[in-house]
């Protein structure tokens, strides 16, 4: 990160939390839309907003179709956008396998709705600057970070 970027961030620091319900596929995208709105209001360029919202949307869909529900913590920091998706289980059996493009355990419900291609985690990894995934049968936590500077407003 270029140190000059840290001097005067031209955006506000924003903290938000969202709840995602299990199998609520009709509302999937709500967190992505809110994220998009916040970043737009703060004046970020569209390619940066797109990168973030793609990651958020994929993670949101994962919580909806795979988990028992969960919450999302959004933080717009001085030099990055950070999101943590924490769900209530059932967890991912094999994380490395889950990250492989094309691998999917999606239900027929998810597939009928156009999801379950096994592309979610690879897509998030591709758009974010860092993605971290931990899981047990108690739940899964997925965090992602998008650095402002490479293509953000301060560069």
């Amino acid at each position: 990160m270029n140190p000059s970027l840290k001097k005067t961030p031209s955006h506000a620091r924003i903290h938000k939390e969202f709840i995602i319900e299990r199998n609520d596929i009709a509302n999937a995208g709500t967190v992505a839309s809110s994220t998009k709105r916040i970043l737009k209001n703060e004046g970020f360029p569209s390619h940066f907003i797109k990168r973030v919202t793609i990651g958020v949307y994929e993670a949101e869909i994962n919580v909806v179709i795979h988990s028992y529900g969960g919450k999302v913590i959004f933080d717009l920091n001085d030099d990055n956008v950070s999101l943590v998706f924490a769900d209530k289980g059932p967890g991912i059996e094999d994380i490395e396998l889950a990250k492989a493009a094309g691998f999917s355990t999606a239900s027929s419900y998810a597939i009928e709705n156009g999801f379950g291609a096994g592309m979610g985690l690879p897509n998030i990894e591709a758009v974010s600057d860092e993605m971290h995934l931990t899981s047990s049968n108690e739940g899964t936590t997925l965090s992602m970070r998008f650095d402002i500077g490479d293509d953000g407003i301060d560069s």
Binding site: I25, A26, A28, G29, A32, S33, K36, K50, T53, I54, Y57, E58, I61, N113, G114, F115, G116, A117, G118, M119, G120, P122, N123, A126
Partner: peptide, 29 residues
């Protein structure tokens, strides 16, 4: 849709048999 999210680009036109509300979410995204 995850395939669309991963590979489609701005101003593409999507041709699909899927017709649920999530298609619009992805198209808008």
């Amino acid at each position: 849709l995850s395939h669309v999210i991963g590979y489609a680009e701005e101003n593409d036109i999507l041709i699909t048999v899927l017709n649920n509300i999530n298609v619009l979410g992805v198209a808008s995204l």
